[in-house]
Simulated scan of single mutants.
Amino acid sequence: MTLDHLPRGESATITSVHWDRLAPEEGHRLRALGIDEGAEVKVAHRGVFGGGDPMAITIGRMTVALRRAHAAAMNVEQQESAR
């Protein structure tokens, strides 16, 4: 599954990133924020207009806004929910 399809409130681990789908400066910015393979992320919010763009994810103690196209370049493995 890609990050743009992860349900709101769910956590996942980024398993791979298709850096070739992103402009080099975008990739550098995302890596600087810790968004790379192995990072644990959670979808916090989605925009209400334009197909849910942008979306907000939490990574560590930060909340980061991402374009849906960026999230679509990231494969994630959903973590089991604590029930």
Rank of each mutant, 00 (worst) to 15 (best):
R83W: 07
G34E: 07
Q79L: 12
E77Y: 00
H28D: 14
P24S: 03
A82V: 10
D36C: 14
V17G: 03
W19T: 01
A23K: 11
A82I: 14
T58R: 09
A12G: 02
A32P: 10
D20A: 10
P54A: 06
A32I: 10
R46L: 05
H45Y: 08
K42S: 11
V41S: 01
M55V: 07
A56Q: 11
K42V: 12
M55H: 00
T15Y: 00
G51N: 10
N75L: 14
A73N: 03
L66M: 07
Q79H: 15
A72L: 09
L3F: 07
E25V: 12
V64P: 03
H70Q: 15
A72H: 05
I35H: 06
W19Y: 09
S11N: 08
N75Y: 13
A82K: 12
R67W: 13
L66E: 00
R46G: 04
V17A: 07
V41R: 00
R83I: 14
A72K: 08
A23R: 10
E26L: 13
S11W: 05
G38N: 09
A39V: 09
M74P: 00
L22A: 03
D53G: 07
T63S: 06
G52P: 02
S16D: 07
V48S: 15
G27Y: 08
L22S: 00
E77V: 07
R68P: 05
E37Y: 11
M1N: 10
A12F: 01
Q79C: 11
A69I: 04
G47M: 00
E80A: 09
G60L: 04
A71Y: 02
H28G: 14
D20F: 01
H18N: 15
V48C: 14
R67P: 06
T2W: 04
W19G: 05
H18D: 11
